[in-house]
């Protein structure tokens, strides 16, 4: 009986396992192997030997990689908490306007179904020094000096602010959707009880909604942290292939991987890309483990 069930289980899993083997496990293992090659030429499929940590050490000595690390971490550590907080606030706000709820839910979900490269280009126009909406608004508010956000004279700071605004905006949609449906699963009686218990709106949010939503908040923070660590589309969308001003100032880890992967003619570059991809993979795993451990203490139920 038991063996029969096992056999069936494997059968049902087979299609998924096959696809995952081809598109996930094989590339992952292959990336590992490639990261140990020396002087790898992908077009000729030839190598000059093996090295255990050579490629990794080269990357770690590459200032561009550290620039990518810095940008990626700034994006992850700022955009994730900010977008979680904003989307929670919006979801709570949506709940209190039941009549327009459906309409705004659609409005907020639109960014999710639009192409981020296209939206990035729209944002690039908004952040334009002379014709952009952002500077126009700032001028109206009394800030006279036009800021060059992402143009030829822009600094790392202004570019990062623009990128963060874009990233947060883009990632709100999915979070609002998940939080809204999560809140619908919270028993209405807790809110009635809180009303009877004279809890203020802020207290209700802080001590009832957030704790009861904590499993979902954890899920969102893990997935969006992983998503932010893989930031790439938003950078290309906003800054184009130059990746910022000066070139590569807004580079992220994935952009770094892609940059080296694209240099097929240069021997060994492909291995740098593989090695940096593995580093990103390890960082991602470490983050998930940390968040999982934190959740055991902080997440209720």
């Amino acid at each position: 009986m038991e063996t029969k069930n096992n056999w069936k289980a494997w059968l049902y899993l087979a299609p998924m396992l096959l696809l995952m083997s081809v598109f996930t496990f094989y590339p992952l293992i292959n990336a590992f192997i490639i990261s140990f090659y020396k002087g790898y030429r992908p077009l000729q499929n030839s190598i000059e030997g093996f090295t255990l940590l050579g490629n990794y050490l080269l990357i770690l000595r590459n200032p561009l990689f550290w620039n990518a690390m810095k940008n990626t971490f700034v994006i992850a550590f700022i955009s994730v908490p900010v977008s979680i907080f904003l989307s929670l606030a919006i979801a709570v706000g949506l709940k209190s306007i039941p009549k327009l709820n459906k309409f705004f839910q659609t409005v907020f979900f639109l960014p999710y179904v639009t192409n981020s490269i296209a939206v990035g280009m729209a944002f690039a126009v908004m952040f334009h020094k002379n014709y952009g909406l952002i500077n126009a608004i700032l001028e109206r508010l009394g800030f006279a000096g036009r800021i060059d956000w992402i143009g030829g004279t822009s600094s790392w700071w202004t570019q990062m602010v623009a990128l963060l605004i874009f990233t947060v905006w883009e990632s709100l949609a999915f979070k609002i959707l998940v939080f809204t449906s999560g809140m619908q699963n919270i028993d209405k009686q807790y809110y009635d009880a809180a009303k009877i218990d004279s809890a203020s709106k802020w207290t209700v949010f802080r001590r009832i909604t957030v704790p009861l939503l904590s499993p979902i908040i954890l899920y969102i923070s893990i997935t969006s942290m992983i998503g932010a660590l893989k930031a790439y589309n938003s950078v290309i969308g906003l800054f184009g292939v130059k990746l910022g001003n000066p070139s590569n100032s807004m580079i992220t880890i994935v952009a770094f991987v892609y940059k080296y992967r694209a240099e097929l003619a240069s021997p060994g570059y492909y291995s740098y890309a593989a090695a940096s991809a593995i580093i990103l993979f390890i960082i991602t795993v470490i983050f998930s483990l940390i968040q999982g451990a934190v959740s055991k203490k902080r997440v209720h139920y």
Binding site: Q189, I196, S198, A199, S214
Partner: peptide, 26 residues
């Protein structure tokens, strides 16, 4: 008013103490 709900509506993430204390804190 004090209201006891049919299924009690105790806050599941609070201890008994925190549940009873909650109205006083507010």
């Amino acid at each position: 008013i004090g209201l006891v709900f049919q299924n009690y509506a105790l806050y599941p993430h609070f201890t008994v103490r925190e549940n009873i204390l909650f109205p006083l804190q507010n």
